[in-house]
Design a binder for these strands. Structure first.
Lengths: 145, 145
DNA sequence: ATCTTTGCAAACTTTTTGCACCAAT
DNA sequence: ATTGGTGCAAAAAGTTTGCAAAGAT
């Protein structure tokens, strides 16, 4: 099952935290578990809600502090979507997002699709694009038909 | 001078507000003046600060309410940048933004530069992109050399 | 005179911080 | 026993709202 197959990944990430000289704690493990399980992007508040199903005493501030630690270690990225929402996702998981304005689905988009733009920007403007993950909005295939 | 040449544009926008059945007020005129004068994007807080130079009693809430009105009338757009900041700009002024991470300069980018991506998304994913103004980050020409 | 808009204060949302207590090493 | 991490409460930062007074028509 899904949970089982993610255990190694969670353990690997916890290992990196410990290797950095920080401590192994339930809170950190739980936050990482949720991020790994969600297979994509998730908001800080949603992480808190899900973690609190198992650990009701866990505070949002701990979630934020854990996310900050994970960002310092380059394990997760924080992404500001074009609709104003803020989400987090694993860093090994580099991609943009196609968000459907109608059904709310989010589809991943390989960074390669922005490469032509990256090239154009450099040639026409001398601007070196840093590929921050983007949230692009529109209508998905299903909602268009 | 700049102020002089913008007067007509400000007046035209105020005219649209009046035409919509709303009232002509100093607050609205001042907010529009600042947005027109800034030639681009500006945050709600910066608008408030600049307006307060002339009208010290003007409250931020009035700025937000005015911005909401201007958005309802399709006069300004609100844009969420990829760095988490929120800015407003005139709607006739459709463009993306190239924000330099080093010097903070913001350069405008015609929507046409995303058109190849728009086409690719439709062909490869069946996704219909709605061109919301984007804030793209990287290094500008000057800072690269 | 009427009905809209404003200023002020207060609420709300999201994220950060100070501090005493608890837990991992 | 230390030092780092957590919960709680409170503070910031950004935005929205209720209400009575001021202003535009």
């Amino acid at each position: 099952m899904a949970h089982e197959s993610h255990r190694n990944q969670v353990e690997e990430i916890v290992g990196r935290i410990v290797a950095s000289g920080r401590r192994r704690t339930m809170s950190r493990q739980a936050v990482i578990q949720v991020i790994v399980d969600c297979h994509g992007h998730i908001s800080a508040d949603d992480i808190a809600t899900r973690v609190q199903e198992d650990f009701p005493s866990m505070d949002v501030s701990t979630v934020y502090r854990t996310l900050e630690t994970l960002r310092e270690l380059d394990i997760v990225d924080r992404v500001y979507f074009a609709d104003g929402s803020t989400v987090y996702h694993l860093r090994d998981h580099q991609h943009h997002h196609l968000c459907c304005e109608k059904c709310g689905s989010v589809q991943e988009l390989p960074v390669s699709l922005m490469e032509s733009v990256e090239k154009d920007l450099l040639e026409e403007f001398g601007f070196e694009l840093h590929q921050r993950p983007l949230g692009l909005f529109g209508l998905c295939k299903a909602c268009r038909s």
